[in-house]
């Protein structure tokens, strides 16, 4: 089957909205509801975080959601079962994001096979070294038709960005500034210079800007410099309220994508 991310990037080249949520948050069984509501509300792709006890690149909001999710009993095994159940009800591309240790304990090859079987399209493993991917794991990703997504930051040297661009087959995750998740994108001069510098590299893969995208303003700013953007912490705050979960999600996503909806 064609990878849904590949198809998406062929069909849509701007204003791509990727929304992150932590599996098992706010409740163990929220996954299906959140996925369906996000798709209905207009998210172009969805990134599901596999909760971890020690999420070192995440700020307080996502950390707290990880803690709650683990208390609720979420695990890779459980998440894959949930995805298997819900996959025929949603068409949107799904990316799994998680730290390497839990995936390693599950077994990296087995994980790739199972994730692909339940309809996952791509993986983000932020602490997976490029070298290990190239030397050890690349065949697993390719055999199971999974896209691999790597991060770049304002400090990543150009040579390394080019290398990542060559290794990637979906999109480049552009971290908006030197920070953990949840800090605000302010659009200050330094940040804009970074966005423009990356834009001028004319990379072959689309770029999505993440970390600190929280509302319509920051989403639109990011989309000026990249093909799309990723919302994480701000969305976790939206789903903290267990009541009216669906209405809150719809309202939030419509607000973020307001200009696109008007244009259509």
């Amino acid at each position: 089957m064609e990878n849904r991310l590949t198809r998406l990037f062929q069909e849509k080249k701007e204003n791509l909205l990727n929304v992150y949520f932590t599996a098992g948050f706010p409740e163990l069984e929220s996954t299906g509801t959140i996925l369906k509501t996000l798709e209905k509300s207009g998210a172009d792709m969805i990134e599901i975080g596999m909760p971890y006890s020690d999420p070192m690149a995440d700020g307080p909001t996502i950390q707290a959601s990880n803690t709650v999710a683990l208390k609720n009993g979420m695990s890779i095994r459980k998440l894959l079962l949930q995805l298997e159940e819900v996959r025929n009800e949603v068409e949107v591309p799904i990316i799994l994001m998680g730290y390497l240790n839990p995936v390693m304990q599950y077994g990296i090859e087995r994980f790739c096979a199972e994730a692909s079987r339940v309809g996952v399209d791509g993986l983000i493993l932020p602490d997976l070294p490029l070298h290990d991917y190239e030397e050890l794991y690349r065949p697993f990703f390719e055999r199971h038709n999974l896209s691999v997504i790597f991060l770049i930051t304002p400090q990543t040297p150009e040579e390394r960005i080019r290398k990542i661009d060559n290794l990637t087959n979906s999109f480049i995750y552009m971290v908006s500034s030197a920070s953990t998740t949840g800090n605000k994108v302010g659009g200050d001069e330094k940040q804009i210079q970074y966005f423009e510098r990356i834009q001028s590299l004319k990379l072959q893969n689309p770029k999505l800007i993440g970390f600190g995208i929280s509302d319509r303003g920051s989403f639109e700013l990011a989309c000026k410099y990249a093909e799309g953007a990723i919302i994480g912490s701000a969305f976790i705050k939206v789903i903290q309220e267990k009541e009216n979960l669906e209405q809150n999600i719809e309202k939030y996503i419509r607000e973020v994508k307001a200009s696109e909806t008007v244009a259509q």
Binding site: Y52, N101, Q105, Y106
Partner: peptide, 21 residues
């Protein structure tokens, strides 16, 4: 401990079957 990753290093660490530290 079993083989895993903690604070950026592959080493022996105490973890659950699911890889939570």
């Amino acid at each position: 401990g079993t083989l895993g990753i903690i604070h950026g290093s592959k080493t022996l660490l105490m973890q659950t079957e699911d890889g939570q530290i």
